[in-house]
Design a protein around this nucleic acid. Sequence first.
DNA 1: AGGCTAACAGACAGGTCTGTCTACTGCTGT
DNA 2: ACAGCAGTAGACAGACCTGTCTGTTAGCCT
Lengths: 192, 192
Amino acid sequence: MPAHRTPAGSARDRILETAFRLFYAHGPRGVGVDTVIAESGVAKATLYKHFPRKDDLVLAYLDRVDQAWFGALRAAARDAGDEPRDQLVGMFDALAGACRRDGYHGCAFINTAAESPAGGPVHARTVEHKTVVRAWVTELARQAGAADPELLARQLTLLLDGGLASGVLDGDPVIADAARRSARTLVDAALR
Amino acid sequence: MPAHRTPAGSARDRILETAFRLFYAHGPRGVGVDTVIAESGVAKATLYKHFPRKDDLVLAYLDRVDQAWFGALRAAARDAGDEPRDQLVGMFDALAGACRRDGYHGCAFINTAAESPAGGPVHARTVEHKTVVRAWVTELARQAGAADPELLARQLTLLLDGGLASGVLDGDPVIADAARRSARTLVDAALR
DNA sequence: AGGCTAACAGACAGGTCTGTCTACTGCTGT
DNA sequence: ACAGCAGTAGACAGACCTGTCTGTTAGCCT
């Protein structure tokens, strides 16, 4: 049970929610800790108690993004029916959904990785995320009966990344549509 | 003709070359003007004379990237032969070449756009670059006889972007290979 | 020779950023 | 009742960043 008077969730939750919103909109580097503090209505000491370094907050942000995006991906696949080959295409509906969302600004992981030093924890976390997603797609491809599930998964995640990455510039849903059609073509070719 | 004693090209060239190297490695935001000055062996006043704002230097950097990348793309297409349908696939060799290059760190445009405010000149310049490339691919697709050149171009540039974007994490050439195979499949399907 | 121009060298102002620290407040469990 | 804990409020240090400004040096053209 939350202690103190907590206007909207615990202080930690408010910090995370605010960080999520600001980090996604401007990139972690583009948002000062002071701004997060001001907008979440939290004391500086509180933030630094929960997240001793700004990087810790960034990593928590990425965890939240991971849950949201991977969840959306699986939900879209599930909604496409029981056939793995349909699910492989259906997951691209998650991309369309993201494009339509207001304030869509591309892939949080790629955007964050682009502004983080190469060997750091942010990079590692991003690689881990992409690896987990690709493993899941690989398993779907295997279930669908692909001759080379690794290759098909690589091709489809490449498409996903492309759609997400260009989202930094343009949330045009035509991108998601093109990606989905590509996916259909690639899946059909791989399972012919 | 260059005035003064210029150890390696004009001061302007040295600044640009240094900025190119540092900006690509760490992102423009991750490199201070002082660092560019120190590494290019130039006086501060000189830098600010040629590039009154840091943004001007960033834009010049993007121009250089545009030339290099678009040039590599066209060269790869040219090397694939005279048939437009082969050129559409062949341009992906430029991606493979980029992946192999030491210090490869993904798409400079996407990386820079990710850390720049949404409405600014950097964004506009990036959109312009992507638009020009896509227009070129569209023309190739039209020459190849695609029923919907716009769609095919969109699909192929999506693949390119995906390959470039994931380069921020991993320069594995298997990515370029997967992209090239996807391109072959998509082109064949579109021209069947 | 002398003026012009490009560049060098570096101090400086004003702002922002992260992270630390002190002092205070109020709820909760024992 | 009271200790402990979670939080508030905000000053502060130290680093870094952009952009300006002053003064000096050296080649080039007339």
